[in-house]
């Protein structure tokens, strides 16, 4: 069975570093890479009647935009020679959804970049990388 690595990408410089790091390791280990982008979404948020009506349409637009404006340029910016790279875009709680993607893909390892922010919000609510370090079902590498 081939090895698969999942790397979380949100378009930030940190996620770009994580992607390069993951591809280097994948090339060395003969693994494939799955780029995962998660759109933050809570099924318990409140929407207006107009937003309800247009939600399905908006979802399609958001997914298309995430692919063309984020995932595709990211892929174009790194050299993937010799490494099989695929991508997935999902909605949900970011850390939980990344864990679920990794589990479903049967990945051997999960990679994520960290921004090193120490804002009040991060101190109170924690960062995605910090949360993944605690809840990831597989080994998780946090790329500085």
């Amino acid at each position: 069975m081939s090895i698969k690595y999942v790397v979380a990408c949100d378009g930030s410089p940190a996620s770009h570093r994580a992607l390069e790091f993951t591809i280097d390791h994948a090339r060395r280990d003969g693994a494939s890479v799955l780029i995962a982008h998660v759109l933050e979404w809570s099924p318990y948020s409140f929407l207006t009647p107009d937003e309800l009506e247009e939600r399905h349409k908006r979802r399609g637009e958001e997914l298309a935009r995430a692919k063309t404006a984020l995932v595709d340029p990211l892929l174009a910016s790194v050299s993937t020679d010799g490494v099989e790279v695929d991508s997935v875009i999902k909605y949900g709680h970011v850390a939980e959804t990344l864990s679920a993607i990794a589990s479903e893909a049967g990945a051997a390892q999960l990679f994520i970049g960290r921004t090193g922010e120490s804002s009040l919000a991060v101190r109170v609510f924690g960062s995605v990388a910090g949360t993944l370090a605690q809840i990831s079902p597989i080994p998780c590498t946090i790329v500085p």
Partner: peptide, 21 residues
């Protein structure tokens, strides 16, 4: 709810919007 349908209108959201009316 199917996790693959995340991002669509959930039952909770439809109920909450109807309730706010």
């Amino acid at each position: 709810s199917d996790p693959n349908d995340a991002g669509e209108v959930s039952h909770f959201q439809a109920l909450a919007t109807a309730l706010s009316g």
